[in-house]
Amino acid sequence: MGQLLNLVKKDLAEQWRTKKILIIAVVLMFSAIASPILAKIMPEILKSVSTQGITITLPDPSYKDAIDQFIKNVSQIGLLVLVFVVASAMTDEKNKRTLEIVMTKPISRQIFVLSKYVAYFISLAIIFTISSLIFYQYSVDIFSEYSWNNFIIMSKCIFAFIIMVVSFTIMVSTLVKNSIVAGGIGFVFYLLFGTILSMIQVVKDYSPNIILSNYQEILKSGYNDDLAKPLLVIVLVVIFSISISMLVFRHQEIEK
């Protein structure tokens, strides 16, 4: 436990000082602040660009439009940035050859990899929680009050989806040496689990994408049974990714 704590502290400090976490924070905070504002002014913008003879009529925007924007921003730009930042979690240690000294110390290789996951989970939990709170406050101020409890459930589900993509990307970062390759594979995985699976009839119900598309139902009535299967898939992917990382890194030669 002491070893894990020492490594997690190191990883958190690294994320902060190398400004990796700042990039993710800026993107998520921007999504939280900009989404309600964009939802509010979008009808005005469309109205102003209406050409002569064509009138675009949109219903009055509501908090649902703001949430729609927020989820789109987080799951598209947010996750894209996140995948490429997280992709360097292990590849940087290999390419900068910092492993060469650390791995000769009495340190468990499994714990070393695990610390990468724990540190990113902690950072993302903090950033995502703050972003969600900012978003909730903004959307309530701009539009109207809506269920706080259901919003929290929805946020937790989105966070679970983010953790799944991050876990898979860290696993790839353990397997390969190049950050861009790790990020690319992580992004393909996101596309697969974020969209493609939901198009295949037999596995549709298990697609983690349901988490992102089911938000209106969650906001209306909280947790529902449709979420159980995708959440199970997410938990399995996270466990699989961590286990494979630990197993592979334990047998990996530290190259010069």
Partner: peptide, 12 residues
């Protein structure tokens, strides 16, 4: 152990 070109965490 001291490697040929010791690489340590530059940010520390």
């Amino acid at each position: 152990y001291l490697p040929e070109l010791p690489s340590m965490y530059d940010w520390m």
